[in-house]
């Protein structure tokens, strides 16, 4: 926690600011049709609408809420090329104070985590939030790697988060239910619904976002994996229709034809 002393004639006010880092990905909209080019070695970006990663959007929304109830600053970080700047500006319009873009294609979980950790290590963030996974590569491991690299505890998937001083109360999903936990700052979290409702930027936020600082930094490390080729799944065969009157016959088909029962 950073402590700020404001000294006036009669009072000494000590205000404690919580520093929050929210890491966002820029990913194709969920409804995008996925295709590849250059002999299936490159993702085809033509006609693709990019959005803030849906899970990252929950993390951002919770961070902005925490800013409303606590004295906090929110920095948003993206590992991405210049084409992710509209998503970074949107995060600023939603309520982040400043932004950092690590200028590199986010090709590998370890690389992204390493870049985040390298940026964050000397900036004493109290809380590092991001989505539980990105919706493009779905590995869901960057938060844990960042936690390990910075020596902070990490939690995922976090569904509720409340902070009182340095005490943190959270709940995370476990198989078949959820678990409530208590920990303390600093820590790293991978978030999912219902931690907060997605926020839509208002006009004032959009105008303000234009002048908020966005720093671009060169990457300092390299990837440990490389994608060599992409492939689309085989086309789905036709759906076999069964009449509602004869619904029971489906079970026999599942046994003898599909062989799944």
């Amino acid at each position: 926690m950073h402590t700020l002393f404001r000294i006036s004639k009669v009072t000494i006010l000590i205000q404690t600011f919580m520093k929050i880092l929210v890491c966002i990905s820029s990913v194709p909209d969920t409804t995008s049709k996925i295709s590849f080019e250059e002999n299936d070695t490159k993702f085809n970006k033509t006609g693709i609408q990019y959005i803030i990663g849906p899970y990252d959007d929950y993390a951002l929304a919770r961070a902005v809420e925490l800013k409303e109830t606590h004295a906090a600053t929110v920095t948003v970080l993206n590992v991405g090329l210049a084409d992710s700047e509209p998503q970074i500006r949107k995060a600023l319009a939603i309520g982040a104070d400043d932004a950092v873009r690590i200028d590199a294609e986010p090709t590998d979980s370890f690389f992204v985590a390493n870049e985040i950790a390298n940026y964050a290590k000397d900036k004493s963030f109290d809380l590092i939030l991001m989505g539980r996974e990105t919706t493009d590569y779905n590995s869901g491991v960057v938060h844990g790697m960042v936690g390990e690299m910075l020596g902070m505890p990490s939690f995922s998937p976090v569904m509720e988060l409340n902070i009182d001083g340095t005490a943190v109360k959270l709940s995370k999903e476990i198989e078949g239910g959820k678990e409530k936990l208590e920990t303390s700052l600093p820590c790293v979290m991978g978030c999912q619904e219902p931690i907060a409702e997605w926020k839509i930027p208002n006009m004032r936020g959009i105008m303000g976002a234009r002048t908020k600082p966005l720093q671009v930094i060169a990457p300092s490390t390299g990837s440990l994996t490389a994608i060599e080729k992409y492939e689309l799944p085989p086309a789905k065969g036709a759906c076999k229709m069964i009449s509602a009157e004869d619904a029971g016959s489906l079970i026999a088909l599942l046994q003898t034809e599909a062989k799944v029962l």
Binding site: Y137, G147, E148, T225
Partner: peptide, 23 residues
Amino acid sequence: KSALADAVMARAAGALQAGLVGN
């Protein structure tokens, strides 16, 4: 893959400087 395994594997891969591929 599971929520817990993802979290545990992530930290271990981070510590061991290991490339991790999911799914």
